[in-house]
């Protein structure tokens, strides 16, 4: 019942036991073809009844689906994958529930290696001060939402050789003060627009919208990047890929070698 869970199950080689996924499960490609049972806000309980799964896996807390499963006698497994350490834990839990503990162990090792590789690559380069923009009012510089210290994206950024300028904030997804943004002077701005299909023209427009904050080094040095890949916001088995992906705009010089 979450994109990262679906992804993990497929990564564990159990894709053929998945009977349904949410509307938002788009990776891997096979997951798109599965029957859809709604999303977090609108779980389709009728279809769940009709499908009658042997196991239902939930990310986090969901009272409605929980109560439904208890009433129907469907066993429920809870996982909470929202940080790198909890991704490992989630994979191990899923592995034992699906009787694939060694595959889970192997997957964790692969992820660990991927993350270490990225860390090693960026180690020789100076760390960059980064502002992550997760959302803002359309075509304006108001209500800038960013990622605080406890967020998943801040954690990957750290591995990819960047320092989140709002890492000291204890809220995971706070609204940033523009004064602080100016003062903290990020060298790079990464704007996330997950799942959006953006033309080159639109991308240039989005980047040009930042020009109003001309005092920020990232803006004056033309280092504002727009990323649309949704894997950056899915705490799942592709975290290593996400870290490598994030390292690309941070350290453009690395990519030539690899």
């Amino acid at each position: 019942m979450a994109p990262n869970i679906t992804e993990t199950i497929f990564a564990l080689g159990c894709g053929d036991c998945v009977v349904a996924a949410t509307d938002f499960c788009t990776y891997p490609a096979e997951a798109r073809a599965l029957p859809k049972v709604g999303g977090y806000f609108n779980p389709n309980l009728e279809r769940l009844t009709a499908l009658c799964p042997d196991l239902l896996i939930l990310q986090g807390k969901h009272e409605k689906v929980d109560a439904f499963c208890r009433a129907k006698g469907i066993p429920v497994l809870h996982v909470a994958m929202d940080s790198i350490s909890s991704i490992y834990r989630g994979i191990v839990d899923l592995g034992s529930a699906l009787h694939r503990p060694e595959r889970a162990e192997h997957l964790c090792t692969t992820i660990r290696h991927q993350l270490e590789a990225v860390q090693k690559e960026v180690a020789g380069y100076p760390r960059q001060k980064v502002f992550i923009c997760l959302g803002r009012a359309p075509s304006g510089m108001t209500n800038l939402y960013t990622a605080g210290g406890p967020s998943f994206i801040s954690e990957i950024l750290q591995i990819a050789g960047g320092d989140n300028i709002f890492a000291d904030v204890t809220q995971p997804y706070p609204e940033a003060s523009k004064e602080s943004l100016l003062k903290r002077a990020p060298e790079i701005i990464i704007e996330m627009r997950p799942g959006e299909d953006i033309s080159d023209l639109r991308r240039r427009q989005i980047i040009a919208e930042w020009d109003i904050l001309r005092g920020v080094p990232a803006v004056s040095n033309r280092r504002v990047y727009v990323l649309t890949e949704d894997l950056l916001l899915v705490p799942g088995p592709r975290v290593g890929v996400a870290a490598r992906f994030l390292a690309k705009p941070l350290h453009p010089e690395i990519q030539d070698g690899s």
């Binding site: 709002f166 904030v169 809220q171 940033a176 003060s177 004064e179 602080s180 903290r184």
Partner: peptide, 9 residues
């Protein structure tokens, strides 16, 4: 804009 700086309410 001050009470939860560096974030806003």
């Amino acid at each position: 804009r001050t009470v939860v700086a560096p974030t806003e309410m």
